[in-house]
């Protein structure tokens, strides 16, 4: 295992500014989701990813068009990083016909299959074997694609995690296991329920899989690490485990005020907010404050327009309750 070192050397400032703007779109979308929930326009629950943007955006930045992503119920950032618009995401949360899943998925199942983001799954760890299967498929079809599974620290204690690492290693598949370790398994500190200090990275060596710890709040560090892992995968050297240490700004879900956090913890992590980190990197690369502000304002305007459009959109089409069960579009079960 190696510690990734952050390096902005050679980083293209324009590219990083695009990453920064995408992260800002995600941040604004999460804030909008929270506010819309509080005003009664989003029902059910939401698991917001504010604070974890750099993992999704950095990973997508390192990968190619057509590479597959599988996400969790905390997956708004992955969907947007893979090209879902704030509007189709927020419309989905608001049960609108224009939602990315036509109102049949909701916050926990945002999906952008057209660009390879093959779903957000709300059973912890269930999507890791799917990513293994997508990587297996890429190998069988000789496409050079890789698959990435994003998951939380809590998923490392479920059987599917271990079955996936073993099979991916045995079959040497082009799959990346990216753990977003945000320190909490729902309401419980991960360290109190896990025998390994680094729940994903420490387990990887027992499967013969290389692992890296990466600063999950540093989009450049994530991008570099994912690029290394993807290169290994495409070269036929098999899977990699990346454990990105990060932090969620909100509680686990809508109903969680996160009162279990020690005093000062959130504040310390806010100092390392991914958007602050990338802004500082941009300045170091010579990007002006005006350009950074313009990117953030553009993101804010995008999300503001998305909220307005989602609010104005018609509600879910009632006929959709009975479509999409089968590949023929229907739901027939008998003669």
């Amino acid at each position: 295992m190696t510690d990734a070192t952050t390096t902005t050397t050679g980083t293209d400032a324009a590219k990083l500014l695009r990453r920064h703007e995408t992260m800002a779109v995600i941040r604004r979308t999460e804030k909008a989701a929270h506010d819309l929930f509080m005003s009664g326009l989003v029902k059910g629950t939401t698991h917001l990813a504010a604070g974890q943007e750099a993992v999704a955006v950095g990973a997508r930045g390192a990968l190619r068009d057509g590479d597959y992503a599988f996400a969790t119920y905390r997956g708004h950032h992955h969907a947007i990083a893979w090209g879902a618009t704030a509007e189709e995401c927020l419309a989905e949360l608001m049960s609108k016909a224009t939602g990315s899943c036509k109102g049949k998925g909701g916050s926990m199942h945002l999906t952008k299959a057209a660009s390879g983001m093959l779903g957000s799954y709300a059973i912890v760890g269930a999507h890791l074997p799917m990513a293994v299967g997508a990587a297996w498929s890429a190998r069988l079809r000789a496409t050079d694609q890789v698959a990435v599974a994003f998951f939380g620290d809590g998923a490392t204690n479920i059987g599917a995690f271990h079955e996936s690492l073993n099979l991916a290693a045995v079959w040497k598949l082009p799959v990346l296991f990216v753990c977003e370790n945000n320190l909490y398994m729902e309401y419980t500190p991960i360290g109190t329920v896990t025998a390994a200090a680094n729940p994903a990275a420490d387990r990887a060596p027992s499967y013969g899989i290389p692992a890296e710890l990466v600063d999950g709040n540093d989009v450049v560090a994530v991008e570099d690490a994912v690029a290394r892992a993807a290169e290994r995968a495409r070269a036929g050297d098999g899977p990699t485990v990346l454990e990105a240490r990060t932090y969620r700004h909100y509680g686990h879900s809508r109903t969680d005020p996160a009162s279990y956090r020690p005093e000062g913890e959130l504040e310390r992590w806010l100092e390392r907010d991914p958007l602050t980190v990338s802004a500082n990197q941009l300045r170091a690369l010579g990007t002006s404050d005006d350009d950074i502000r313009a990117a953030e304002e553009s993101a804010a305007a995008t999300v503001e327009a998305a909220v307005d459009a989602a609010k104005a959109a018609p509600g879910a089409d009632l006929a959709e309750a009975f479509t999409d069960v089968w590949a023929d579009g229907g739901a027939e079960w008998r003669t």
């Binding site: 597959y68 093959l118 890791l128 074997p129 799917m130 299967g133 059987g159 079955e163 996936s164």
Partner: peptide, 13 residues
Amino acid sequence: QAIVGAAMGAAMT
């Protein structure tokens, strides 16, 4: 889980 989950991922792709 890996057998059926991997089959699912392959079927989706």
